[in-house]
Simulated assay, not measured.
Amino acid sequence: MAVTVVTLTRTRPALLARALASAQTQSPPGGFEHLVVADDCDETHALLRGRELPGNVRWLLAGRGPGEVSGPGRSSRLRNMAVRISESPWITFLDDDNEWEPDHLTSLLECARRTGHRAVHSQLRMFHPDGTPYLEQLDPWTADEEAARAEYARMRARGVVAPGTCVRRDRLDPLDTPDPVVSVDTGEWLLARELLLRLPFRDDFDAADEAARTGEDDKLAADLRRAREPVSCTGLPTLRYYLGGYSNNFASAFDPTFSWQA
């Protein structure tokens, strides 16, 4: 297969079913496999065992040892495991609460072919969990309202967001760029497997990361910039990103076992 799509999932079988259906709308040249990693969840395990899945879908149940918890560190370790067991030259990630437009993989592969780059990404449309467009002029990853307005204004000035639209023109500015934009969600990336084996997701997170809401995608972006890896963007908002995950959920616990730092 040309691409392995990796989906991590836990305690959200209904959303996983939506993500599985979304992936099956893709028709990239060379085909793709969808590798679903169920993170120690009996409910999700039951759904996968009991459902007749397409032939290009395979799944595994990742158990936990003593003291292992949910969080960006755990997600990084599972992503890295999926990369290692994949045999595809390209890896992409579809979180269980998100969807893709049908041309997502095709447009990413075309961008990679055209540029010769090992790291390419799309852009996104942002939605509330109920499917309504996110149109608030607030950065959704910033808890303090004043700071969220300020960050939205900065992103507006940099051409990432605009009032009246839920499109987010994410990008990864290179080093030495004044006031850089460093914002690419995991679900926007298409990455060469060889690159991810050399620059895996980091699983070290501390109190400073928790305060800044730094996730595994943020650390990957920082590592790509430091390595001066060439990056290209399709310019197409083909990721349908739904709010409500741990990076933007300030009201309640994302998962009872969740810990940012463990």
Score class of each variant (00 low, 15 high):
residue 5 V to K: 03
residue 24 Q to D: 09
residue 167 V to T: 12
residue 77 R to D: 12
residue 28 P to L: 06
residue 169 R to C: 15
residue 6 V to Q: 02
residue 122 S to Y: 00
residue 151 E to I: 10
residue 41 C to E: 00
residue 204 D to I: 14
residue 114 R to C: 00
residue 31 G to T: 05
residue 141 W to A: 12
residue 103 D to Q: 12
residue 260 W to D: 08
residue 254 F to T: 05
residue 29 P to C: 05
residue 240 R to Y: 11
residue 92 T to P: 01
residue 14 A to S: 13
residue 190 L to A: 08
residue 186 T to R: 10
residue 214 T to H: 06
residue 223 D to M: 12
residue 205 F to A: 05
residue 166 C to K: 07
residue 67 G to M: 06
residue 167 V to R: 15
residue 39 D to W: 11
residue 153 A to K: 08
residue 62 A to I: 01
residue 214 T to E: 10
residue 186 T to W: 00
residue 105 L to T: 01
residue 119 A to S: 01
residue 79 R to I: 10
residue 234 T to H: 02
residue 189 W to S: 02
residue 262 A to H: 12
residue 159 G to E: 13
residue 86 S to I: 09
residue 32 F to R: 00
residue 153 A to Q: 13
residue 164 G to C: 13
residue 150 A to F: 02
residue 112 A to Q: 06
residue 241 Y to S: 06
residue 86 S to H: 09
residue 112 A to R: 02
residue 135 L to D: 13
residue 39 D to I: 10
residue 128 H to M: 14
residue 164 G to T: 06
residue 209 D to F: 05
residue 186 T to S: 14
residue 15 L to I: 06
residue 133 P to K: 04
residue 89 P to L: 06
residue 26 Q to Y: 08
residue 15 L to W: 11
residue 79 R to F: 14
residue 229 E to K: 03
residue 54 P to K: 03
residue 146 E to H: 13
residue 110 E to C: 02
residue 181 V to K: 09
residue 215 G to M: 04
residue 27 S to Y: 07
residue 77 R to V: 12
residue 5 V to G: 08
residue 38 A to W: 01
residue 189 W to M: 07
residue 153 A to W: 06
residue 115 T to Q: 10
residue 123 Q to H: 10
residue 181 V to L: 08
residue 185 D to W: 11
residue 15 L to R: 13
residue 8 L to R: 11
residue 143 A to H: 14
residue 69 V to T: 15
residue 229 E to A: 06
residue 112 A to I: 01
residue 91 I to L: 15
residue 33 E to C: 08
residue 61 L to K: 03
residue 157 A to M: 08
residue 117 H to P: 02
residue 76 S to C: 09
residue 222 A to P: 00
residue 192 A to W: 00
residue 1 M to W: 02
residue 132 T to N: 11
residue 85 I to D: 02
residue 166 C to V: 00
residue 67 G to F: 08
residue 136 E to F: 08
residue 53 L to D: 07
residue 41 C to M: 03
residue 259 S to W: 07
residue 137 Q to T: 15
residue 171 R to D: 03
residue 17 A to V: 04
residue 12 R to I: 01
residue 122 S to E: 04
residue 215 G to H: 09
residue 13 P to E: 07
residue 19 A to P: 06
residue 124 L to N: 07
residue 93 F to E: 07
residue 261 Q to N: 10
residue 44 T to M: 02
residue 228 R to Y: 02
residue 82 A to M: 12
residue 165 T to L: 05
residue 199 L to Y: 07
residue 75 S to W: 11
residue 117 H to F: 15
residue 210 E to V: 10
residue 262 A to N: 11
residue 64 R to S: 14
residue 261 Q to R: 12
residue 78 L to S: 00
residue 23 A to E: 05
residue 92 T to F: 02
residue 75 S to F: 10
residue 134 Y to W: 14
residue 26 Q to P: 03
residue 107 S to R: 15
residue 162 A to V: 09
residue 226 R to Y: 05
residue 18 R to Q: 13
residue 194 E to T: 14
residue 112 A to Y: 04
residue 38 A to H: 03
residue 173 D to R: 03
residue 205 F to S: 10
residue 150 A to P: 00
residue 209 D to M: 06
